[in-house]
């Protein structure tokens, strides 16, 4: 593989990494639609799901453009999904929907944190909070990317993410510094989600390659910002930072927890069962 080929593939994988986080978290959050604890929060959290979905769309559109520019050999080697392989063999160009609906679990590069189940409100808030704190600093940096499309997507997304981090921090504080029961359950949720946070700031091959190109973000720099922000909110919430240092990982390499399969089954069913179906 020559260096330039390598870089276009790395950029595509990098774009998919960001897009998959947005799609899978957006889908998870959308499961609350119609089930929120109160009407106002049902609308609030569903708005957030749509923000993530909108970000995913922009990123998948860009990823599809990058994919279509690869040569046939490169295209064949990228995804295990047989549905995609058959489109590629027919020489079809891919679009955002193909990337969202036709890739298999192995092809998804989202972190494990975002695929974890909603469980209750505290677990949902904990997952969003830990992710939003990362996402906020990530998009802040990505605005400086040498890649103009990624920089523009980051610029637009950051406004949404700034509200997300405000919303989820507010709930961590509200529940942590609330009743004895809410404090206990918020702490438990933070503890249980904690092992999935290391992967957020761990450099994958694509992360490293894109950082070197001036396209990607230095996650090591994000790590300390993330820690500081998380610690200050957790302290205000009268909660404690978990002391576990054992971290789970694998999502950026396409290895996932059992939950992703169930998400994809629901998310992709319609397009898999009725290809090219439209509303």
């Amino acid at each position: 593989m020559t260096n330039s080929k390598n870089m276009s593939i790395q950029k595509l994988l990098y774009t998919l990494q960001i897009a998959d986080n947005a799609l899978i978290l957006g889908h998870r959050i959308s499961e609350w639609c119609g089930h929120g604890p109160v009407l106002e929060q049902d609308i609030a959290i569903t708005n957030t799901a749509l923000d993530h979905l909108g970000q995913a769309r922009s990123l998948y559109q860009y990823a599809a453009t990058q994919f279509n520019a690869l040569n046939q050999e490169e295209k064949k080697g990228l995804f295990v999904s047989s549905a995609l392989q058959s489109l590629i063999a027919q020489g079809k160009l891919l679009d955002e929907d193909d990337l969202a609906y036709l890739r298999d679990g192995w092809d998804f590069r989202n972190v494990w944190l975002v695929e974890q189940p909603n469980k209750d409100w505290a677990y949902t808030v904990a997952r969003s909070f830990l992710y939003d704190c990362f996402n906020y600093f990530f998009y802040t940096e990505l605005r400086n990317s040498k890649d103009e499309t990624l920089a523009a997507i980051a610029e637009k997304s950051l406004k949404e993410v700034t509200y997300h981090i405000r919303w989820s921090s507010e709930w961590v504080i509200r529940l942590g510094d609330g009743t004895e029961e809410s404090h206990k359950r918020m702490q438990q949720a933070i503890n249980d989600r904690w092992a999935y946070t290391g992967e957020l700031v761990k450099m994958s091959e694509a992360d490293t390659a894109m950082l070197a190109e001036g396209v990607g973000v230095d996650l090591n720099a994000i790590a300390s910002q993330w820690q500081e922000r998380v610690a200050s909110v957790i302290e205000e919430a009268t909660l404690t930072i978990p002391q576990d240092t054992w971290m789970q990982e694998g999502g950026k390499e396409g290895r996932h927890t059992e939950h992703l399969g169930y998400i994809l089954a629901e998310l992709q069913f319609m397009q898999r069962a009725y290809p090219n179906m439209e509303w």
Binding site: L39, E40, Q41, I43, A44, R166
Partner: peptide, 16 residues
């Protein structure tokens, strides 16, 4: 709308 305090009322108003 319903909200626990002014800050939540403000955010709920924004979302609703």
């Amino acid at each position: 709308l319903h909200a626990a305090d002014a800050q939540m009322a403000m955010e709920n108003a924004r979302d609703v």
